[in-house]
Simulated assay, not measured.
Amino acid sequence: MSALKAGSPFPEGVSFSYIAPTPETSSVTACGIPQKLDASKEFKNKKVVLVAVPGAFTPTCQANHLSAYIEKLDKLKAAGVDLIIFIAYNDPFVMAAWGKANGIVDDKIIFASDDNIAFSSSIGWTMEGTGRTARYALVIDNGTVTYAEKEAAKGVDVSGVDAVLAKL
């Protein structure tokens, strides 16, 4: 598989690991049980914003990326977004804790692991030599990619919420 671009179908066989939010797992110290999110299936009938970051709790990802998406959740939903997913190389336990530490204890944003950076590697969007996902954003509308941009540097110019909102 190669890098995705607008007009491409979202690939088959893509899954991520995540811990579904429940009242029992709402505490940041509650672990939960990881499960698979069949992205290929889930994305067929929804408008999805998928954001990849190099790592949970890292400075740019926390301060400039996730916080802006949380601030503009209502605008994303008003633009017809059904599902917002943040992925990183981190395991699903760390990703779940990142969400809970930011006050997301429901399914407003799903925090998932790109297990072994399999998906990001398959599209060629990783941080070379680090074993981490690159910073990028995809919009998938009913199984078709309508926006796909990878950051060239450490900023959030093309993967930040404002860039994504402008393309919805």
Rank of each mutant, 00 (worst) to 15 (best):
M1D: 08
S2F: 04
L4M: 09
A6N: 06
A6V: 00
A6S: 15
A6Q: 05
G7S: 11
G7Y: 01
S8F: 03
S8G: 05
P9E: 03
E12H: 04
E12L: 03
G13V: 04
G13D: 06
S15I: 00
S17N: 14
S17A: 05
Y18Q: 06
I19A: 01
A20Q: 14
T22Y: 02
S26L: 02
S27Y: 04
V28Q: 04
T29G: 07
A30C: 00
A30G: 00
C31I: 13
G32C: 00
G32Q: 06
G32A: 02
I33N: 14
Q35D: 04
Q35N: 00
K36R: 07
D38T: 00
K41W: 01
K44D: 05
N45S: 12
N45A: 08
K47L: 08
V49P: 10
V49R: 11
L50T: 12
L50K: 11
V51A: 03
A52N: 10
A52S: 15
A52P: 06
T58W: 07
P59E: 09
T60S: 14
C61Y: 04
N64R: 10
H65A: 05
S67W: 00
I70C: 06
I70A: 03
K72P: 13
K72D: 14
L73Q: 11
K75Y: 09
K75G: 11
L76I: 08
K77Q: 12
A79R: 12
V81P: 11
V81E: 08
D82S: 09
D82W: 08
L83S: 13
I84D: 12
F86Y: 09
I87A: 12
Y89A: 15
D91C: 07
D91A: 03
D91F: 00
P92Y: 08
M95L: 07
A96H: 12
W98D: 05
K100M: 00
A101M: 06
N102G: 04
V105S: 13
K108V: 05
K108Y: 06
F111A: 12
A112E: 06
A112C: 10
S113L: 05
D114K: 13
D115I: 12
N116M: 10
I117G: 08
F119H: 07
S120V: 08
S121V: 07
S122R: 11
I123R: 04
M127N: 14
E128D: 15
E128H: 13
E128S: 14
G129V: 12
R132L: 14
T133C: 15
A134Q: 09
R135E: 01
Y136P: 10
A137C: 10
A137P: 10
A137E: 03
V139D: 07
V139H: 10
D141H: 11
N142F: 00
G143V: 01
G143F: 03
G143R: 01
T144W: 06
T144H: 04
V145M: 04
V145F: 07
T146E: 02
T146I: 13
Y147T: 11
A148L: 06
E149S: 01
E151Y: 01
E151C: 00
A152K: 13
A152Q: 13
A152G: 15
A153W: 03
A153R: 05
K154W: 00
K154A: 15
K154G: 15
G155Q: 08
G155Y: 01
S159E: 06
G160Y: 11
V161I: 11
D162G: 01
V164G: 13
L165S: 07
A166K: 11
A166C: 01
L168P: 13
